[in-house]
Nucleic acid binder design. Structure first.
Lengths: 217, 217
DNA sequence: GATTTATGAATGAATGTTCATTCATCAATT
DNA sequence: AATTGATGAATGAACATTCATTCATAAATC
């Protein structure tokens, strides 16, 4: 006859959504975006395939939810870092850059997922739309941090917009290293490299960049 | 009679292979790796689907052939650039960096394909294997260019290995900008940014970086 | 005429979506 | 307190579609 399924207790909606998002993230990381199927995600989450359309209308919406969670997590991280940082411009810029490489975010698992989405951005423009708001705020913030340091430090030769683009590109390029690189660089080595690069742009503030912010509350 | 295939026969084959590779590249760029089907590639190439297994055993091999062609094209570009460049270390480094942004390579179409593959590297390690040899040579060359400039220019504070990693990351990060960036930066703007970054690392050679090499033969 | 090359319909496996069914929970009623 | 009924969360088999691969046939070439 028909089999009985072990029905687990109903959990809050938000919790199950996150359960699916995390399962999807794991699948994308290990299988790639191409081979991430709803059945794989369901299995990873320990749920039924039907639950995916229950919480997200379809597969596509689940995937964009993954991207949105990554974006939100990153934004939260740098907001927090700046909130915890004293007002010295150089320290703030250093704290911002260090965010890219903090343990919670800078994992090969997660970075691989970022690049999985970026690898499809041109073909799936709606991924771009998901990121647009986060990107804009990120870019504007980084640019104003650069502007503040240029002003305070008297770096006449630098322009904030260009410096910001360079810094962001450098950090993302170092992320790529984590995914494609042959010599497995550690998180800490990537951090040093990034701060080296920052120091090259603003050489008179190398010591400030190197300092971890310790303020809290 | 002659069971031997004369040279005249080999040419159409290579030509058709390239036809399929280019069609696949176009598909990956516009559809993404996930939605690139053999039927789409065949249509783009104006051939039958069966021809794909004729020239490449299966879809997977066609895709890696695309990646290999990209890698070869890039390697050829920087080899040529260095061959055409005078022996001044700074000029050579500048020429190498400029390669990333030369018109034939730095097209949104092509860069999107690079990132499509990089986005699947963790899940499909054989993509990594395809690039490994090219990457190693690229990295070693860049590192030795940095070493030469550090030596010749007296940059005691820099180490070649770190500088090379930073430069490569920066260039690839700027490539990413071309795919994901909201403000469509032109090839020429990316070049300026890259040379700015290079100038920050080796400030006493900014003028040399800016110069196009004109030597030929 | 023989051999190689190209074609695309056919095939079966894989995948996203749907939906009838099951059953835990809880309010209403006795 | 005990019973009943309504609700909707969870499930996964069934379905329609898409896709990579195959191969019988046609076309081209020697």
């Amino acid at each position: 006859m028909s089999k009985w399924k072990p029905v687990v207790r109903a959990k809050p909606r938000e919790q199950r959504e996150r359960q699916l998002i995390n399962a999807a993230l794991e699948c994308i990381s290990t299988l790639g975006l191409s081979d991430t199927t709803v059945q794989a995600v369901a299995a990873e989450a320990g749920m039924a395939v039907g639950s995916i359309s229950q919480y997200f209308d379809n597969k596509s919406r689940l995937l964009t939810a993954v991207l949105r969670q990554l974006s939100e997590e990153f934004e939260h991280a740098w907001r927090q870092a700046l909130a915890d940082c004293d007002p010295d411009p150089a320290r703030r810029l250093g704290a911002f850059v260090r965010c890219y490489f903090q343990p919670a975010l800078c994992q090969r698992r997660k970075i691989a997922v970022w690049f999985a989405f970026w690898g499809e951005v041109k073909a799936q423009p709606h991924y771009q739309e998901v990121c647009a708001r986060y990107d804009r705020l990120h870019d504007e913030t980084l640019e104003s941090l650069c502007a503040a340091l240029i002003e305070a430090g008297g770096y006449r030769e630098r322009r904030a917009r260009e410096a910001a683009k360079l810094i962001a590109s450098m950090c993302q390029g170092l992320w790529l290293e984590l995914v494609t690189g042959r010599d497995r660089l550690k998180r800490t080595e990537l951090t040093s490299l990034a701060l080296d690069g920052l120091g090259a742009l603003f050489p008179r503030h190398v010591p400030a960049f190197a300092l971890e912010t310790t303020v809290r509350g």
